[in-house]
């Protein structure tokens, strides 16, 4: 039951009708119900599902029967195409400043994976571009947040700027940027504390850091296992900070990751990277089409369609 893929669902829903080679209104209604269910079980936001179903229904209604594809396959194909479209057609790279340093600021709820992602991105840039990043430790709240960043930095031989936990994060960022200028670092990462999007005081702090640092990239880090609340979170951070990109973490799990679709739908901001593990090398570029198949749970169906 739970996590049954859309493929199986649709096969069940339309199994009797395959020979007809034609989709009736009743078939379509049943099919849309199954799609809705599959998306909800994948944690796609309720309102987003509604809009999406409408789009798919409109398209499916006008679709001619394709040679060689049964109705279930055709509808899955439409769903997949629409999902991929919605998720952004291709991967979007990290913003880069014309002159150094490129400044990247992190944001997100507690425990989403911000600090880990700072480490992963810094290592990626170091390996791929021989970059010389500086990591600024601006989380003064979480116990040992600075130790965590320092450990990651020292393991990768990447410098970390910190003023301990007694200095205001705004001041830490100011001084960190000054140090980056002095040392000609080409990238600066600002690791910030996790916070709720409804926490006025801490959201003000983030907005201030944004004003001070004028980041080229403000990344919103979101846990791929997030449920219906992903929309509120993404909206909250985006409205306040106007984020420039999203990182979806913990995709190495068995979650369907419907949050990806919700975030994309409400913010319109590109998902740039996905976290696929705890190691510093476990970061991948985001591929909308793969994410779409994952949400639907339908790897096999796509191969089927391609062969048809």
């Amino acid at each position: 039951m739970a996590f049954e893929g859309l493929t199986e669902r649709l096969q069940n829903a339309i199994s009797g009708l395959r020979k007809k080679g034609k989709v009736t209104d009743a078939d379509l209604r049943e099919t849309m119900r199954e799609i809705r269910l599959a998306l909800l079980e994948a944690d796609v936001n309720f309102d987003v599902v509604k809009d999406f179903i409408k789009t798919v229904r409109d398209r499916a209604t006008g679709t001619k029967v394709l040679e060689g594809l049964n109705p279930a396959q055709q509808i899955v194909k439409i769903v997949d195409e629409e999902l991929t479209k919605m998720m952004g057609e291709e991967a979007v790279p990290l913003n880069k400043s014309p002159k150094i340093p490129t400044i990247i600021m992190m944001s997100g709820l507690q425990g989403a994976g911000k600090t880990t992602t700072v480490g992963k991105l810094a290592l990626k840039l170091k390996n791929e571009e021989k970059a010389r990043p500086l990591l600024i430790a601006a989380d003064i709240y979480r116990p040992a947040a600075i130790d965590q960043l320092q450990k990651l930095g020292s393991d990768m031989d990447i410098p970390v700027f910190s003023l301990g936990t007694d200095v205001d994060p705004r001041e830490i960022v100011r001084q960190g940027l000054a140090q980056a200028a002095e040392n000609h670092n080409d990238y600066v990462f600002i690791d910030t504390a996790g916070r709720l999007q409804i926490d006025e005081e801490l959201m003000n702090e983030l907005a201030d850091i944004k004003d001070i640092a004028k980041p080229d990239e403000i990344l919103l880090v979101i846990d791929a296992m997030t449920g219906q609340n992903a929309v509120q979170t993404a909206e909250g951070f985006d409205q306040r900070l106007d984020v420039t990109g999203v990182v979806l973490t913990k995709l190495d799990g068995d979650t369907r990751g419907g949050a990806a679709l919700s975030i994309r739908a409400v913010t319109g901001k590109p998902i740039k990277f996905v976290g696929q593990g705890e190691k510093m090398t476990d970061l991948d570029v985001f591929y909308p089409d793969r994410m779409s198949s994952r949400i639907l749970g339908m790897g096999d169906m796509l191969t089927l369609i391609e062969k048809a």
Binding site: F3, A42, M225, T226, R256
Partner: peptide
């Protein structure tokens, strides 16, 4: 994590299988 969606069910199942979980703490 209180913000987790349907995957939490999977978490509860598999952790229960391996360590015979006796209760839940629901955070955030």
């Amino acid at each position: 994590d209180g913000t987790t969606g349907q995957n939490a069910l999977q978490q509860a199942k598999l952790f229960k299988d391996s360590t015979d979980v006796s209760g839940i703490v629901l955070t955030k």
